[in-house]
Nucleic acid binder design. Structure first.
Lengths: 130, 130
DNA sequence: ATTTTTTACTTGCAAAATGCAAGTTAGAAA
DNA sequence: TTTCTAACTTGCATTTTGCAAGTAAAAAAT
């Protein structure tokens, strides 16, 4: 259970996603990563224990959820909840800053900037995992 | 000198401001904090060594700068550079998320949401410090 | 001009977060 | 059924953050 430093909405948001990895994970989910392996393969090379712990934390905070790829399977598929997807505008603003202000940054896939919170957490996305 | 994990603009942005405190510091500067003491008094209660180190790091990255409040004085006044101010949209998006998605968060001062990057780093702001 | 107070750090150490690399096990593939 | 692989877990090292006391120069008070 996350403990908020103060009532400030920014500080509180950071209390949930302001670690070194959470936003990077959410970024990858916005552009299609759904499994633990997908995320482990991120170019930033996250450590396995950090990834596991972050996913647990993000799930507990309600930003992501894990569902079963198939009936009875324990290997899950992660997806953004509406609450998690609502962070997309902030991620996009951050990406723009990075592109504009930092030298020689990659250009994110088109899919990233076109993503909208409403595109996520609509149920059908989960069952179409394959 | 910050080392970027990868070329991704988000990850790179986070490599600069993705610690526990940088964005909180920038937030306070957007709404008027200019001195070390102002920032030390933030409701989040930052530790003195962390504040000093963060200010040094943000200055090195070109997001803030310190100038002298008066001729010859060593006590400086901190202000956002254009580069730092360009993060305002991302901070505002994050604040909105915090307000919308987290229970019982404070409402940021009007000044925060009305702030525009162009309002900062125009020179006259520095000399009017008092 | 001198003394006192305050600001801006610095320092030493503890606690928490992150990272590395090997290990384990259940699910999936062969 | 056996083998392979995904999804963690574990033990320990390194880095970051936090606590609290200390220091010194600048600013305020006398």
């Amino acid at each position: 259970m996350v403990k908020f430093r103060t009532g400030c909405p920014i500080a509180s948001a950071l209390d949930i996603v302001g670690d070194k990895w959470s936003i990077v994970i959410i970024r990858s989910m916005v552009v299609g990563a759904t499994s633990y392996s997908d995320l482990l393969a991120m170019p930033e090379k996250i450590a396995t224990n950090i990834l596991a712990e972050r996913l647990r934390r993000l799930e507990e905070a309600g930003l992501i959820r894990q569902t079963q790829a198939r009936q009875g399977a324990t290997r899950g598929v992660y997806g953004l909840t509406a609450k998690g997807a609502a962070l997309i505008p902030a991620l996009q603003a951050l990406a723009r800053w990075g592109e504009d202000e930092l030298p020689d940054r990659w250009t994110p896939p088109e899919r990233f900037y076109s993503a909208r919170p409403a595109d996520f957490d609509n149920g059908s996305m989960v069952t179409s995992a394959s």
